[in-house]
Design a protein around this nucleic acid. Structure first.
Lengths: 213, 213
DNA sequence: TATAAATTAGACCGATCGTCTATTTAATGA
DNA sequence: TCATTAAATAGACGATCGGTCTAATTTATA
C-alpha cells in the first residue's frame, strides 16, 4: 500500500544487487490492480488507471503480463488466496468458539469495508456480476474461489456442530453455500448504502437460521 | 421485445396519423438499453451498442435523451416500475396464500433468468455493485427502488402473519430487507453458475428462517 | 406556399482503450 | 574488454469511446 521508499524507476536492466526491485514492480501492479478492481470491476477498468496508481509506465505492464486477461486471472487467484488466508486466520482461532470465529470474520470484513469507506467490495463478487462481459475462462476461476471459501466455511460449521452450538441435523455444506450466496448480496448492498448495516443484517439472519431461532 | 412490425425508420418529421411511431424509437432505445444493462451494467456499456441493438442511428439518441447519465436515470426508473408491477402481480394474487405468492414470484424470476440463459441479472443489483464508477445521482435512485421493493415485500409478509403462516413476532420490515440483500446475491451467483440453483437455495433458506424451523 | 417542428444521418473531437515496437541499461560469456 | 543477451521502460499506434454538432429530410402548420 505505502511506498516504503521513493524507488527510482529506471530504464534498462536493473543492477543485480537490488534484485528486490525486480519483483517489486510486478507486485505493485498486482496490489494496485486489486485496489481498483475491488472498486470498479474488470471491464470498465483501464490498464492506464492501474499504471497511474502504481506509478509504473505502460511499457512495463506488458513486460510482466501477457495482456489484460492474463493479469485478471492472476488477480483472481491472488485475491482468492488472500481471502482464504483471512478466513483461516479466524476460523482456526481456537480461543474462540466456532460460531464466534464466524462472527470475528464478519467483523474483520466489516472493518475492511469501512476502512475504504465502502468503496471497495469483493473482487469475486464484482467479477461474477459482470460475467457476461468477461473472458469465458474467468468463470471457472471464480467458481473455484467460491468453492474454496465455502469448503472452509462448512468446516467451521461442522466444528460448531461438534461443539453443540448448532443442531446435529444442520446441513453444513448447504449452509455454507447459503452464506456465500447471501454474503455477496450484503457486500453489494453495503457498497450502495455506504453502511455496514447490510452486513450485520445478513449475518444476524444467517445466525438465527443456523440456530433455528 | 419482438419487433411486431418491420417499421421503416424514416428521416424527417413523422406523419401525425401514426403518432405511435413517435414514442416508438424512444421506447425501443429504453428496451434495448435495459437488455444490455441487465447483462453488462452501465459503465462498460457504450451507447453505440444500444443503438446497434435497437437499429437506431446515433443522431436519434441525442434527440430523445440529454446524455448517457440522463438515459441511465430513465432506465433505473423504468426498471423499478417494471419490477414493482411484477411484484404486485404476484403479491396481490388472492388465489394464493401470502407465502405461496412469494414462492410464485421466485418462480417467475427464475423463469425470467432462465429465458436469457442467466446472462441477464437485476439492473439495480448490477448498478449497485458498480456504484463507485457511477454518477453520484444514481445512488439515491437505486436506494429508492430497493426501498420500494422492500415495502411491497414487507406487506406480503404482514399478510402471511395475519394468515398465520408465520409467527406474530416476526419483524416483517427487517425480513423484507434481509430478503432483498440476499436475493441480489443469489441473482449474482445464478449468473456466475448459469443455474437457478442459487435462487432456490436462497429462497429455501429464507422460507425456513421465516418459519423458524 | 413558406416556415417551423420533428427526426435521422453521420462526420467530428479529445480522451482513452489494449497492444506492440523501439530504446536503454546492466549482466554475461568469451 | 567487448559483443551479445536479458530486463525494463518509453511512447507510438490504430481502434473505439461518449458526446456534440451540422446538415438533410419529412411533415405539420399558418
Amino acid at each position: 500500500m505505502n511506498q516504503t521508499a521513493p524507488i527510482k524507476r529506471k530504464r534498462g536492466r536493473p543492477p543485480k544487487a537490488s534484485s528486490a526491485e525486480y519483483r517489486d514492480t510486478r507486485q505493485e501492479l498486482i496490489t494496485a490492480g486489486l485496489a481498483v478492481l475491488t472498486e470498479k470491476g474488470y471491464s470498465y477498468t483501464g490498464i492506464d488507471e492501474i499504471l497511474r496508481k502504481a506509478g509504473v509506465p505502460k511499457g512495463s505492464f506488458y513486460h510482466y503480463f501477457d495482456n489484460k486477461e492474463s493479469f485478471g486471472r492472476i488477480l483472481i487467484e491472488a485475491y482468492g488466496r488472500y481471502f482464504a488466508g483471512k478466513l483461516d486466520r479466524w476460523f482456526r482461532d481456537s480461543s474462540l468458539s466456532p460460531l464466534q470465529r464466524l462472527g470475528a470474520f464478519v467483523e474483520d470484513a466489516k472493518a475492511g469495508m469501512e476502512k475504504f469507506e465502502f468503496r471497495r467490495g469483493c473482487l469475486i463478487g464484482n467479477l461474477g456480476q459482470e460475467m457476461t462481459a468477461l473472458p469465458d475462462a474467468f468463470r471457472a476461476l471464480l467458481q473455484d474461489v467460491f468453492r474454496d471459501w465455502e469448503r472452509r466455511t462448512a468446516e467451521v460449521l461442522r466444528e460448531a456442530q461438534q461443539a453443540g452450538e448448532i443442531a446435529a441435523h444442520t446441513q453444513c455444506d448447504q449452509m455454507a453455500h447459503f452464506f456465500w450466496i447471501g454474503w455477496e448480496g450484503a457486500v453489494l448492498r453495503a457498497k450502495l448504502d455506504q453502511s455496514p448495516q447490510p452486513l450485520d443484517q445478513f449475518t444476524e439472519g444467517f445466525l438465527s437460521l443456523l440456530q433455528g431461532n
